[in-house]
Design a binder for these strands. Structure first.
Lengths: 198, 198
DNA sequence: AGAGTTACCAACAAAAATGTCAATAGAGCC
DNA sequence: GGCTCTATTGACATTTTTGTTGGTAACTCT
């Protein structure tokens, strides 16, 4: 009847960090920024909170690392969709992907969180991604950079808004949650087509 | 050389609450949700934190009251702009006002905060406002409710996104901060005109 | 197997944040 | 002036959250 000392799991530093960050991300998306407590993160990751500190130094360290990881993830997801060589499919799909990225991956909540906490500095990744799209797909289609930039700004903002409040907004007016997304997608597509036509 | 007992300011309950809420709003917009600490709110309002508790019961009470006040403010601001009898001016101005409301008054940050903290329940005010617009101005213009709803969903989402990340997004790609807003406004106007034309 | 490295944890310590209470002091009223 | 009401506060108490330390256990390498 002696108390078992509970077998430990020993991970590589990278795996440990990864594990902890996943827990943190889950908490951020479920409970919001307030829910990002040291002990909860640790609990969700199945480790002691001392371990979290061992790997990230402080709770701020966790937040910083989480933000960076999520941004990286978001940007990668968006850029991944610029691949197809068929320009038509691109125009069709760019909205889809953008909306997906900001909605499903919690991208919108991430961005909102960053914005609210004033952590807009470490968004260099985003800048690079936008630059890539402008000089890549857009340029190929003969859109001048000025207009291309504007379109991207609008599209991203819209995706952001839809991702953040789209669902609850639709429910608020008694429509199925996907309504906002679909309407926005149609709106965006029409607008893009019109803008690129000239 | 005796210590002065520091003269007290005695307000009416309403004035006291108002004063405290202003401080809270300022903090929310400046420092984000994390900055909404009891002592800081009290400090900003020039009272002791015990006083804040006396009026709101708990820190949650402050948050709830603040959210409600801000929502009320936001909705009022938007509805105020539906007044003009000239339909053309309306179409022109609705975007302006919407964007203003979500940007200047911190409406976007409010909404983001609510969304992040999962407090989407007390948004009945918003529902009513939307309903009012649909049955009011939109109906007068002969837009069927289905389409009107969709347009509103898109417009609000866009305003939300622009208000939240518009400025930093523009700066991120090396444009003046208002660029996003202007581009979005133009985009929205064009889209609305096209959608309403049919 | 033995030694070295370090991820890991329990217990402790410290700080921060929220909440309680009895006493004080403005303000209106008699 | 004296009285009542209550907004206000300092000082205390509690809870929550974060950070520290010394030692243990898992893994690798020889």
């Amino acid at each position: 009847m002696s108390i078992e000392p509970a077998r430990r799991v020993r991970r590589s530093p990278e795996a440990a960090r990864e594990n902890i960050l996943q827990s943190a991300e889950r908490l951020l998306l479920e409970r919001g920024p307030q829910g990002l407590k040291l002990v909860e993160v640790a609990q969700g990751a199945g480790v002691s909170h001392a371990t979290v500190l061992h790997h990230f130094g402080s709770i701020d360290g966790v937040q910083t690392a989480l933000a960076e990881a999520m941004i990286r993830q978001l940007v990668a997801r968006v850029l991944e969709a610029e691949r197809p060589d068929d320009p038509e499919a691109q125009l069709e799909g760019v909205g889809q992907v953008l909306f997906d990225a900001f909605e499903s991956a919690g991208g919108a909540r991430l961005a909102a969180w960053l914005e609210l906490t004033g952590e807009t500095r470490r968004l260099t990744l985003v800048r690079e991604a936008v630059a890539e799209v402008i000089s890549g797909p857009m340029a190929q289609k003969g859109v001048d950079p000025e207009r291309a930039t504007n379109l991207i700004l609008v599209a991203v903002s819209l995706a952001m808004g839809v991702g953040l409040i789209g669902r609850s907004l639709a429910e608020l007016v008694g429509r199925p949650p996907e309504t906002t997304r679909e309407a926005a997608l149609a709106f965006l597509k029409a607008g893009l087509a019109a803008a690129l036509a000239r």
